[in-house]
Amino acid sequence: MASLTGVRGAIYFPTRAHNHYQTWAGYDSARAASDLDYANRLNLDAVRVILSYHRWRENRRAFADAFDDFLLHAENRGIRVLPVLFESIGRQPTKARRRATGDAPALKSPAGATVRQPWKWDGPRNFTRWVMNRCTDPDVVLALEIMNEPGEWGPRLSFVREMLRVANEAAPSVPLTVGCKDIRYNKQFSDPEPDVYQFHMNLPPTEKQARREIRDAVTFARAHGKPVWLTEWQRLRRSPRSPLRPNYASLAPIIRQSALDGDFFWQLMLKPAYMRKQRERGRINGLFHDDGAVFSAADATALAQRPEAESRGETEGQSVEWVERQKPPSGFGAGGGN
């Protein structure tokens, strides 16, 4: 099994995609290559990207071409991919919402009716097997995440447990994980257990609380013999910069100094919020504009710094001359962030 430690990553949606369906229905190879070049500039070695079950169902060939192309671009840049099969967050994925352009909502995948009714799981099982068959190279795929934030709802937990079993049978060598919001939710899954524990900590109020949450998560994972990744983080809620704007520099040093085995910040590309309520409040997340300019040079420097460089007294990342442009992404109105 390839290393599951020392992982430095980001969540990836293209700038113009508000949800996973838009990511793959509007996939642009040149844009993806350019965005992954930006990840290289930050010394990242992984990206977490949500796949689209509904896009796969409606046009398997187009989805296959896009997914294979993305994996190739990542491999060529030494970046491993953490694909996420299913998503619990957002609105029901009706055809109208999937086909919406521009300011579209986050979408569940699959629909709630499918999750609630096990006799409708053959489609998700086939999707899981299909993805697993493309994810067996450890130099390309870091691990396979079954679902983002399944929570504690019984039918959804049953669905995730079944897809864990299917994925493990399809490719036993591929590490499996679940996008748990709380570290303790990882223990809801067994036979098989996740190979890596996850937790999310998007907006901790203070530095003290952030350190405590990370320490508790590491202690919990170590007690169960698992590596642990923080797969969503953004900023300290209480800091001088506007609370609706990115401020990765407020949290990055705490994460870099921790005993975490990996982290993924939300998110690589500058864009409006993933969740509609946050978007309407005017929150934005991300670092890079489409043209490679960064929203914040301070954030870029903090994100580019590697712990091993710090321990050697080096200034890797700090010597980069970042082109900074502190304004919301064009064409999206006032909104943006998770």
Rank of each mutant, 00 (worst) to 15 (best):
T177F: 13
T177V: 12
T177Y: 12
V178H: 08
V178C: 06
G179K: 03
C180V: 10
C180W: 11
Y185D: 13
Y185M: 08
N186Q: 11
F189L: 04
S190Q: 05
S190L: 03
D191Y: 15
E193V: 14
V196M: 15
V196E: 13
Q198Y: 14
F199M: 04
H200V: 00
M201G: 02
N202K: 05
N202T: 15
L203I: 07
L203C: 12
P204F: 03
P205R: 11
T206H: 13
T206S: 15
T206Y: 15
T206P: 04
E207H: 07
Q209Y: 04
R211Q: 14
R211E: 12
E213F: 03
R215E: 10
D216G: 14
A217M: 06
V218I: 14
T219S: 14
T219Y: 14
A223R: 10
A223N: 10
A223H: 11
V228S: 12
V228D: 12
W229F: 04
L230E: 05
L230Q: 06
T231F: 14
T231L: 09
E232P: 02
Q234I: 04
Q234F: 06
Q234V: 06
Q234C: 09
R237D: 07
R237Q: 08
R237F: 08
P240Y: 00
P240T: 02
R241W: 14
R241D: 08
S242Q: 07
P243Y: 11
L244A: 07
R245M: 06
P246Q: 03
P246G: 01
Y248R: 06
A249K: 06
A249W: 10
L251R: 05
P253K: 01
I255W: 11
R256Q: 13
R256G: 13
S258Q: 05
A259R: 12
A259I: 08
L260P: 07
G262W: 14
D263F: 09
F264T: 00
W266T: 00
Q267F: 15
M269K: 06
K271A: 02
K271G: 00
P272M: 03
P272K: 02
M275W: 13
R276D: 00
K277D: 11
K277H: 11
K277F: 10
K277A: 10
K277S: 11
R279L: 09
G282W: 03
R283K: 09
R283N: 09
N285H: 06
G286A: 11
H289W: 01
H289G: 03
D290C: 00
D290V: 03
D290G: 04
D291G: 01
D291I: 01
G292Y: 06
A293W: 04
S296E: 05
S296V: 05
A297P: 09
A300D: 05
